[in-house]
Design a binder for these strands. Structure first.
Lengths: 341, 341
DNA sequence: CAAAATTATGAAAACGTTTTCGACTACCTG
DNA sequence: CAGGTAGTCGAAAACGTTTTCATAATTTTG
């Protein structure tokens, strides 16, 4: 366990001052070539690397981004994260990641923990609990303290900050319309995320599409819940009614819809066409039949969010711009689970 | 953009010294109740939180762990990460995460970037490129500088540090034996990770099982490669030969084996039994039939690695223990893709 | 009432940097 | 030779803490 080299040590061992060492290593013209060479060689020998904390303290920033993700095992968030990391790395930023596990308390705790100089700004998606309780005051507090936040996917409308979202309403509207265009008359809705902002928007899009086409809403084939158990107990029920299409609002729901259809003896897409939100890891190519999905472009969301935050961090006092909400368009990826009747 | 409160500011505004403020907020007995109350109230009003960087600099540690993961979109790594994060949070540590994307250069870059005071220690899984080139010198350099490393899953034998692994050889041996016990005579091997340490160990386990049972090795039904394309072009071929069992060494391989079997018209598990390494997100429950897998306990690996590192970080000079290699036992989870003949 | 003990506060150093400014030498110029 | 100018280098401050030690004021003690 060697002690790490510092400017001070090097200075002492070479009988020069700390400032001389610092300048030499930074190639300042004030220092003679001779001593520069001497110091640089010695520094290399000692494997000197400037301690970032000293620098951070001096610059009063850390070039580090805090990311709070509700659940890393959800592949959508994993994708977003990978987008963030990519951009951050390119721009010389580090990424501190915390997982809120959908808990409001952990979310607050993380915010507190990191907003003390550890990070320069946050990128986050609101936890389920916070959305359920509509409790967003902790975000405003952080922003007021001068730490910028960029929210993505699950956002809080009443918090003033930059946001990156998918056009949930329109995507759902279009997807449902697509099922209708394929000839579906009885389209079931399956949502296990009805407590989330995105879940509500998507459900609204579905309803709007039905209304636009003068299709009456059949509550028997609509599941809107926020619990896995509830979902499991209800999903059987919808197959007792006539169904020729399913629109699922979340990745797990999509896969569940497919499996259940097959298990109940329906053929997909012959009997039932299925479209689901999903970012492509679970669903898509690996299933038989593969699922037609609304692709959320997770990586792109992460990239855009990171760019926005870094832009915000690096703007000067004068050029502070207004908060922005960036909408990423989804894309319907047609695969094997949909077909014209 | 309010300026954040500092000790200095508070001191000035209350006409006391910085040290008094610091002591008051830390409840030092040196300070009178009266001034304590006054200072604490004012601090609360100003929403004062001690700047961590000042502390870090003073303590010469950051209570932050650096995690380097080859690929976050791989659900095994996502699970490990979630285990790490859980333990770290409980013990009051932050987690800085970087993704090497299997690149040696990014791995080195990350190591350099973070080992300058930003983090106290690393938890990492070696990138594919480093394993291919057998280039591990960058790890030793970091360790020599006094920054501890805990490696997991993909490890480098020649680097002296703590390690957390799965019993790859034994797992493969047992899984293959299990297929044999089920009555399989012609067991194919599918590996797209033959360049990785874990891939080699697993393949060796497979071969040993065959040998133990006096089954001759049939190279026609063995695919060992390190490229996706190569895999795609070869996988068709093995079905031209007699096969009644498949052992797949990686999550993607497992799913591919299942899909391909079905596509080729075989029934699983009636015609072919399949066992694959997988941590349960992609494969397992969601597929039909669901896959019998060797479960790697990703979350537990992460937890154990984090515990080990933190233990290492917090031990004193005298109590430094020897490096340890911790083996996590895998578990064979029987599902629908295996059956006795 | 003087000396000692207690109590409350502040000054300064330390952590590792960068940067501004001042100081010293040697040389050149008029 | 006085004065100016490069060319080198070092001292000190700053970032935000904590902590040790000194100082001042007050109280207790003999």
């Amino acid at each position: 366990m060697k002690a790490k080299a510092t400017l001070k040590q090097i200075a002492k061992e070479l009988n020069v001052s700390v400032s001389t060492v610092s300048k030499a290593l930074n190639d300042s013209p004030e220092i003679s070539e001779q001593t520069k060479v001497k110091i640089k060689e010695y520094a290399k020998l000692k494997n000197y690397k400037p301690n970032v904390i000293g620098l951070n303290l001096k610059n009063r920033k850390t070039k580090t981004i805090g990311v709070i993700i509700p659940n890393i095992l959800n592949s959508f968030f994993a994708k977003v994260f990978s987008g963030i990391e990519k951009v951050a790395d390119k721009k010389g930023y580090n990424v501190i990641t915390c997982i809120s596990n959908e808990s409001l308390e952990k979310e607050i705790h993380t915010l507190e923990m990191l907003s003390n100089g550890t990070i320069d700004g946050f990128i986050l998606s609101v936890s389920e609990e916070a959305q359920k309780l509509q409790d967003y005051s902790h975000f405003s507090a952080i922003i007021n303290d001068g730490t910028p936040i960029v929210m993505f996917d699950r956002i809080a409308d009443e918090v003033e900050c930059d946001k990156v979202v998918v056009d949930d309403f329109d995507s759902a509207l279009n997807s449902t319309q697509h099922l209708i265009d394929l000839g579906c008359k009885n389209i079931a809705l399956i949502s296990s995320v009805d407590n989330l902002s995105v879940g509500k928007l998507r459900a609204d899009g579905y309803l709007k599409a039905l209304k636009d086409n003068n299709i009456s809403v059949n509550d028997n084939i609509i599941i809107r819940t926020d619990s896995e158990e509830d979902m499991k107990s209800k999903i059987d029920g919808i197959f007792d009614h006539k169904i020729d299409g399913i629109f699922a609002l979340e990745e797990n729901d999509s896969v569940a819809a497919l499996r259940m259809s097959l298990k109940k003896g329906f053929k997909v897409p012959e009997d039932i066409s299925i479209i689901g939100f999903a970012d492509g890891i679970l669903a898509s190519r690996r299933l038989s039949p593969s699922l037609t999905t609304v692709s959320q472009h997770g990586i792109e969301i992460g990239e855009v969010a990171a760019k926005k935050l870094i832009e915000r961090l690096e703007e000067t006092e004068e050029e502070t711009s207004n908060y922005e909400t960036i909408v990423i368009k989804t894309k319907l990826k047609e695969r094997e689970s949909t077909r014209k009747k």
